[in-house]
């Protein structure tokens, strides 16, 4: 039995699939011949073109969920589809807030375990192997399922490059919402958007991040200024997110974003393993830290042993003079 069908849990905002969705569809094509998307929301139909272009032949559309959190209704509808004997071999779920909810709920409904934190996949005959970075990415673990299909993999963003296959628009098939009862009672009463300008953190070619070494929230302005001068996005270590200096959306690392920019600049960041997993994939890394033994230097192409409060103002001044 080879791998025939893969479902991709496809997140769509305002008619546009998320980048991770496209990454998963691209990877799904190399695993199986049939790739189908599972989606929801008011604008899925508008995304059928792009979903098809990246490889989905069909999009199972659960429709507008209103103010319900997606985890339960999406998993319930998927489980129903599996019960109707439309059983995929593999289900790929993005490691997003809602994706993780869907995977957890689906896992119990199907009584299948989940493999999470996947950063690579390979199909080999009738087997799919997943890769995971552990200990800050120093070691790569390869894992596989030994039990019944479908196999549910939760995949981290930026694990694969998204590439169009030039496919025709996906056929939109309605997937009925199932009454899930008491578990489906969490409701969103309001949504808050924290605006930020410039490129998105996980898509920027340059990311300039600051850590606790900046000393205070006010000094983070230097990180923002530097990011702006380089046309990049500002990022952060968890230490300063927890301290409330910047919103969570800025966090790079295990529990934040994975970034793979052309250049990553770490300013006043020690380089804890949980931070390294999120940025080690950058093409070039510059680190500024006053402690010459800071672990961040072990991954830096250029390391400046110095005080960020002295180096950054001069650097900003030099870049301003050139722009």
């Amino acid at each position: 039995m080879s791998i025939e069908k893969v479902w991709v849990v496809a997140e769509v905002n305002d008619g546009v699939p998320t980048t991770t969705t496209l990454e998963l569809l691209t990877e799904a094509r190399s695993i199986a011949t049939t790739v189908e998307a599972i989606s929801w929301g008011p604008s899925t139909a508008a995304a059928a073109g792009v979903l098809g272009e990246y490889g989905a032949s069909v999009v199972h559309d659960i429709g507008d969920l209103g103010d319900a959190l997606p985890g339960v209704p999406v998993a319930a509808a998927m489980a129903e589809l599996v019960a109707s004997e439309d059983v995929p071999d593999v289900i790929l779920v993005p490691a997003s807030y809602d994706g993780r909810d869907v995977a957890g709920r689906l896992s119990v409904r199907l009584d299948r375990s989940v493999i999470t934190n996947v950063v690579g996949l390979t199909a080999d005959g009738d087997e799919v192997r997943s890769e995971h970075g552990i200990f800050g990415g120093a070691q790569v673990v390869t894992a596989r399922f030994t039990g019944e299909r479908p196999w549910i993999f939760v995949v981290r963003a930026k694990s694969f490059a998204a590439e169009s296959s030039g496919g025709a628009p996906a056929q939109v098939v309605e997937l009925a919402r199932v009454d899930a009862g008491a578990v489906d009672t969490a409701r969103v009463v309001s949504r808050h958007v924290e605006e930020r300008s410039g490129p998105k953190l996980d898509e920027a070619a340059v990311v300039v991040s600051g850590g606790r070494g900046l000393g205070s929230k006010d000094n983070y302005a230097m990180i923002e200024e530097l990011a702006k001068l380089l046309g990049g996005a500002p990022g952060a270590s968890r230490a300063i997110v927890d301290a409330g200096w910047v919103p969570y959306a800025y966090q790079v690392g295990q529990t934040g974003k994975t970034v793979k920019p052309t250049l990553y600049m770490a300013c006043g960041i020690s380089g804890a393993t949980q931070h390294l997993v999120g940025m080690k994939g950058a093409k070039n890394i510059i680190a500024i830290n006053k402690d010459q033994d800071a672990p961040i230097f072990s991954v830096a192409d250029l390391g400046i042993v110095g005080d960020v409060l002295k180096v950054l103002p001069k650097l900003i001044e030099a870049l301003r003079a050139r722009s």
Binding site: R112, S113, I115, R129, G133, I134, G137, A138, Q139, V140, V141, T142, A143, R144, F145, T146, G147, E148
Partner: peptide, 11 residues
């Protein structure tokens, strides 16, 4: 458990 680790190698 229905999953297993196949190998662990240095990155």
């Amino acid at each position: 458990a229905s999953q297993e680790v196949v190998s662990v190698v240095a990155a």
